[in-house]
Structure formats: C-alpha cells, structure tokens
Design a protein around this nucleic acid. Structure first.
Lengths: 156, 156
DNA sequence: CAACCTATGTCAGAATGCTGACATGAATCA
DNA sequence: TGATTCATGTCAGCATTCTGACATAGGTTG
C-alpha cells in the first residue's frame, strides 16, 4: 500500500501540515473575539519585539508577501494601531511602530495566544519540547538551504 | 524583553508555522512544473490511498473546507483526473475515484513530493524523526481535544 | 410514525493572499 | 562617474479559500 505513494498516516510532512492547520484554527478561535486574525496578530507581535521593521521585513516574518502585508498595514494604520512616517527617512523603507492603542490590543491577544501555546505543549516534557524545537529547526534548515541538513543549529 | 509577549525566536508555535510555510513552498516549487498545487496533489494522494472518499472527507483530509474541495473536484473531474457518479448511490455522498489519467499524474507528483520529504528529513536520525512524529501527534491531540495532552498516542 | 439532529452537496458573496509589473533608492563595481 | 544589481513600496488583476445559507438524505429518539 505504501509502494507507490506517500503513506499519509506516517508522513512527517503531512503531520506537519496537520499540526499547523490545527494550531492556526485554535489561534483563530481565540483571536476572533478580539477581532483579530493570525496574520494581524503576528504583525503586531513582530512590531513589539522589533520596533521599526519595514513592510517587507514584516512580510517575511509573518510568511506572507509584501503586497499582502501592505494592505494589512494600511488597515492597521487607518485604525490607529500602527504608525508609519509619511516619507521615508532614508531610502524607501518606511519603519513601522506600534501606537499605544496597538500595544494595548496586542496585550490581550498575547494572553489568548499564549493559552493556546500552553495547551499545545501540555503533556510534553521539557526534553520533548526542546527535541521538537531542534527537529523543526533542522527541517527548516534542510529545506531552505537544500543541502543535506547538517543540523546546523547551535542548540537551543 | 519576553516579559510581555511571546518570544518568536523560541516559540514552538512560530517555528511550526515557519516549518509548514517552508515545506509548502518547497512542495509548490516541485509541483509547479507538473501544473499541480499542494491541495491538488493532496486530493489525488488521498484518493489513491482511500478510493471512494466523499467530497467532505477529502476536504477534511486536505485541511480545507468542503466548498474549496468541491471547486477543486469539479476542475479535476472536468480535466479527467477523477470521476464521480452523476447520482449518489446512497444518500447524498458522491464517492470519488481516480481515473487512469489521474493515477499517472499522481505518480509523477509523488516522486517530486517524496524528494522534498527526503530533503526535509536529511540530517535527522531515525530516533529524531520518530521523536518529532510523536511530538507533533501530541500537539495535535492536545489542541484538538482541549484536555491537557495526556500524550495519548500508542507509539509509532 | 413524526420530530429532531447531523452530515452532505451546493450556491452566492466576500475576504484574503498571490503573481506580475513598475518606479525609486541604495549599494556595488567597472 | 556611470552602469548594474538588488531591495523596497506600490498598483492592478487574478486565484484561492472562506463564511453564510439552503435543501436534502439518513440515523436517532420520542
């Protein structure tokens, strides 16, 4: 049965997709009452940790295209959660920052998202969690650089 | 810096999203020359392993809505990769099956996808892989059932 | 048998994200 | 200096997926 095909029951790729799907659904569920989507939240969280990120950098961090992030930023700016200078201080890059309103909004979202993450990790030991962390980093590295995954992460 | 916020650098949830994103991109890259999307491929692979699946079942297996899967199935049917009876043999369920053409198309895709999965797992030992497998199953279980993740998977 | 509940297939509308393309600013290099 | 290369922000059009809603089939329960 597995001779010509990828057994979805034992495929790590399929399982990865499933996990990501379930996680996204769980996050959307807790963020919906706050009127926030996952990408929306990701953007705010990125800005909280790295103020002044450009549109393109935010897009990469949230795993969407520049174009998609741009429309989101326009909305967030219009609603007063973020600010961007009208003119680029240098080059074309418009550094984005959270407003106090955006920061307040993020705080609630963080609580909700953290609860999901806690629930996801329940039942896993610290060792299992760090093992999963290293495995995921290895997969990402192998897929990105194409080479045979030298496991090139210096450890947690 | 991590007092009020989720440190994206150490968050398993963020890493999961990143891994899934990279995996999807890698799959799309190898499937594009075959004129196939990831959902497209997932659908065919599901049908190969479980012939006669209904539209709704395929949707759940590919992690999309019934509606999305339905439009995909209409396309696949029109292009001759799958067949569905004009009338439901029982109830409303229309069991879908691969045509020989669909099976040939899937074979090429499977080779491409397998190469991606092999690349992703390069650099990981068998032990690491089975560990990652169990971790992902645990996360899925914990998020789905809401309870504290009793790690209720009977092993590989 | 009748009422209820669930699941399925389907239609319509809207949101979201992506691809393609363009002009601009900065860095690199001959 | 001038040409080239690259990254950025942005516009337009398109594809994909989702949400909401409806009718129908089947099982369940009184």
């Amino acid at each position: 049965m597995n001779q010509d095909g990828i057994d979805l029951e034992t495929s790590l790729g399929y399982l990865l997709k499933e996990a990501s799907s379930v996680l996204r659904a769980a996050m959307e569920e807790v963020l919906r009452p706050l009127g926030m989507s996952v990408t929306h939240y990701s953007c705010l969280e990125l800005l909280a940790q790295r103020p002044g990120l450009s549109n393109s950098e935010l897009a990469r961090g949230a795993f969407v295209t520049r174009q998609s992030m741009n429309v989101l930023l326009q909305t967030l700016e219009r609603e007063g959660y973020v600010t961007r200078p009208a003119e680029a201080p240098v080059g074309k890059v418009l550094p984005t920052r959270l407003t106090p309103s955006g920061r307040r909004s993020l705080e609630k979202a963080t609580v909700a998202v953290r609860s999901v993450e806690v629930r996801m990790l329940a039942g896993m030991t610290e060792v299992e969690q760090s093992g999963a962390f290293r495995s995921l980093r290895s997969m990402i590295h192998s897929l990105r650089d194409g080479n045979g995954g030298t496991n090139g992460n210096g450890g947690a």
